[in-house]
Design a protein around this nucleic acid. Sequence first.
DNA 1: AGCTGCGGGCCGC
DNA 2: GCGGCCCGCAGCT
Length: 398
Amino acid sequence: MLKGADDVVMEHEDSASRHGEMTSWDINDIKLPQDVRQIDGFQEWPDSYVKHIYSSEDKNAQRHHSSWAMRNTNNHNSRILKKSCLGVVICGNNCSTLDGRKIYLRPAICDKARQKQQRKCCPNCNGPLRLLSCRGHGGYPVTNFWRHEGQFIYFQSKGAHDHPRPETKLEAEARRSTQKAQTAFSPSCPRLKRIQDLESPTGAVPTQEALPPLLSKPDTSSLPDNFRGHISKSSQESVLGSCSGWPPCSRAGEDVSSREVLAWSRSPALGSSPNIRRPGSSPAVPCTAPSPQHCAHPSTPHTLPVEEDGHGPFRNSTGPLGDGSREDKYPLAYNSCCLPPLPYPAPQGGPCPMASGAQHQQLSVPPRGSEGHDGEGGHHMGLNYCNNDMFFNLYPLR
DNA sequence: AGCTGCGGGCCGC
DNA sequence: GCGGCCCGCAGCT
């Protein structure tokens, strides 16, 4: 009953199989395998039809963490926690920063917070923000299932994300903190004022939250695993022109239609480079600016040059269920438009660490061998590897 | 304020 | 019955 197409797909795509892990089980099975030969390292960006078995000691697993924005979904089964993907918040103008990065914000998990979030504007061009819904599971959001059984925590993912990766939870939190700090700091910031002016007419909440742009480099790190192999270099072509599209904050709709989703998924701008596979790396970073000179920053160890392909189709195919129905075109890219670099006071003590998305991948993330399917230890740090200290240093204002 | 988990309830298939 | 989703509540950070 619950097994069907999904399982079939899993047989072919379950990355877990690469680790010799048992993949014959299904989260709904009455009995799950206890003869686990290998416990997986926590996967921050699980994608496609994968299954993992974590140790019940794994903190991230215990918290059912995921760098994807997953919301709890009631499946009327208290034994199995189900979560569905909220997608990613993008700029309605599909703008790009000067360095070619895209805006991929993390959708707020809380419904109200998400609605509030969507009333805000693009941190980069001040355009409207749009929620790009996840339709990777037969047109529905990708779902993740968590089940605690004995000394293990079983995880199963159904569907392949058909959208870019949003910023991680840590990044989102850091951004919020920064924004708050900013607000407290420079209430009279001309730029903010300007934004407020722009927003007021729309009724949008003129918060500065939108200020620190979360720039996502369209790099691989932002691509779902299943996209990684479809990179195309044509991507770069997408970054041109200027802002077009909607007026600032015209209207933030909850959910970009699925058509757009597809468009995005095929947009070269979303591409990623095959060589990046740090799950931990996050595509979106709370930093300001479009201007690298403000944040020339050395700490970009994991950064890939934009050319490296930050663009490429993020996904060339539809989900397993194939929804080729979505085909709209989406205005592609423009160069950073509108707003000048943020007035961020570069954190004392160092160049803006968050700066140019180029580096942004998750700051303190140690390089990983692969997208995270390595099952090797070390991932247990998972979402935590970006320690708070780091952020505090980055955001001293807090 | 926002995240997370839980559970009631509705709806479509 | 199943799956998706909305909503409210409660605990936690």
